[in-house]
Every structure is written in C-alpha cells, then in structure tokens.
Amino acid sequence: MSLILNDLAIGYPNHLVMTGICGTIQSSSAVALIGQNGAGKSTLLRTLSGEQTPVSGSCVWDASLKRHRSIAWLPQHPSLRPDAPLTVRELAAMGLWARLGLFGKPCRHDQERIDQALDMVGLADIEKQQVDTLSGGQLQRALFARLTVQDCGLILLDEPFSAVDGASQAKLLEVIHHWVGEGRTVIAAIHDLECARHFPLWWELSKFGAIMRRSDEKPLSSLTQPMRAVSGVAHSS
C-alpha cells in the first residue's frame, strides 16, 4: 500500500510548475512537504487529490484496504462558508457523505466514529456550538474531525498550522500521529520548518526537483543542490 509518483509533471498547460517528480511514499507515513513559496507544494497536493489533472506522468494511490482507497484533502483556505449554519457535530458528520450518499442513514458505528473524532480533537464539549462562533484553531480542529470521519487512507493537508495557536497545533499533531498509527498516510505542505520537524520525513520541493529524506538528517541548506529529480523511498520510522 503506497503512493507511487511516476515522472509526474504538475502545473497548467501554459505554465509548468514542476516536472519529473518520481517517488514512492509507503503507507503509515507522515511526510512534510517543504520548499519555498511557489515551489509547487499546493499544486502537488491539488494534483494528488484529483482536483487538478497532471500535465503528464501519473500518481497512483494503491490502497490494500478497500475503505482506505479514497483520498481526503484539506486546502489551506477551505471553501467552507464562515457563516455556515452548522453545528460542530454536523460539520464533522459531513465526512460521512461519500459513504452515505443521498439517503443513507448514519448507523450507530458512524455516530460513535463522530464521537471519537470530536473527542480526539478536543471539541466534544462544544459539539452543539455553531461553526461561525469558533476561533481559527477550533475551526481547524473541527475540520480535522471531519477528515477523521471521512476515514480515508491518504490525507493531504495544505498548511494545516498556518492559522492556529500553539495549543491547537499540538492537538492537530496528536491527531496526525493517531492517523498514522491507524495505518493512514499523511502528506502536509508546511512552510514553517519548525513545524515540519514534527514529521519523520521531509519531501523537499525546489525548482530543481524533489528530494525525500528523513527530517533528522543534515540541515536543509546543504541539500539544495542542482538535480532534476530524485526519487526517494520513504519508510515510516
């Protein structure tokens, strides 16, 4: 079970952002996607999510578990309306949509899953509160609860800590570690290297290509050397 990128080129027909991205990310990994602004972190995540089609090459998410086949994506600026008339619980329950469809009723297991998700992000006591009254950090935690309820094998996060305080960040990191423990794979675009240090693996994007390495290796600056594309095989450790 892994994510396989094969000579992937991302961007737009008139504007290539990156070409020749190769590599494999094993399941149960947490990978921080790092690189300067404009390096292509968000474009890569959008492409992996299926929201944007690759210019060429392919990316394949090969999940062994059927329920882990789908991919969840949380953009940096979600399209959720700030004044959405939803409670925290209803927002988390939205994660059941792919499974329940038009008329499916949430079963007891689904309700328990929502309970657990809200408990995990620390919002169980305010589950009846309206979404528009939440702080930035609380809203991000509620969106993480929705991701948990979605029950996907591959979770893509674009700058998940950019608008949250320290306490919320610690909670969100706990959730990410929990996901990885459950066998999910998490890829997060992160511009702040201090935040990225919490991830066991880094995948650095630059105009020269992409390189995968462990975050406890050499300092970042010594690695930005000219190379078109380097494939890396990552194992969670």
């Binding site: 929201e51 979600p78 959720l80 309306r81 939803l86 949509w97 469809g101 038009l102 979605q150």
Partner: peptide, 23 residues
C-alpha cells in the same frame, strides 16, 4: 428532498463535495 444532502454541502463547502470521494 431528493438532492438535499449534496445541495447543502455544495452550498456550504463546494470544494469538499468535489474532493470528498463521493459521487
């Protein structure tokens, strides 16, 4: 009644509806 669920999600969070793995 028939389209309530997708219409509600499309109204409140259209990107989620597109990328959530549903139909």
């Amino acid at each position: 009644t028939l389209v309530y669920r997708p219409l509600l999600i499309d109204t409140l969070d259209p990107q989620f509806l597109r990328a959530s793995g549903g139909a």
